[in-house]
């Protein structure tokens, strides 16, 4: 959908205005997003080395296993990570094909 310059400008203005109104939550969420990105980077790094189970990733990254599981679950939901098989009592996860490159 293409916007006219005018429309685009107006949108930006509204966004800015709403952002100002919600400064506090926006800042908090931004900080949260940063942490999320750091953790994701670590997890993805591990997965690029091949399919892994949660405790392996946790050990390699030093992240708590339950946090790793949560992020894997989130990435799986939005098709960034796929489950590739079972290894003993754990499932193995890998990067989804499209995101690997």
């Amino acid at each position: 959908m293409t916007l006219t310059r005018e429309e685009a400008k107006q949108r930006t203005a509204i966004l800015k205005q709403v952002r100002d109104q919600h400064q506090e939550t926006v800042d908090r969420t931004r900080a949260r997003l940063k942490d999320q990105q750091t953790v994701r980077r670590q997890i993805c790094q591990q997965l690029r080395g091949g399919p892994k189970i949660v405790p392996e990733i946790a050990e390699a990254t030093g992240l708590p296993a339950h946090e790793v599981l949560w992020h894997i679950t989130a990435m799986k939901k939005y098709d960034l990570v796929v489950e590739v098989g079972q290894c003993g009592e754990y499932y193995q996860y890998a990067m989804a094909k499209e995101t690997e490159s």
Partner: peptide, 30 residues
């Protein structure tokens, strides 16, 4: 245990099947 996005359809079988934005957890990136 799972994750949702700040803007989302509440869940797969939600009625109405319409998105809503959780503004308290949004960075308003647009």
């Amino acid at each position: 245990l799972g994750a949702v996005r700040a803007i989302r359809v509440p869940f797969s079988t939600a009625v109405p099947q319409k998105a809503f934005l959780d503004i308290d957890n949004c960075i308003l990136c647009g």
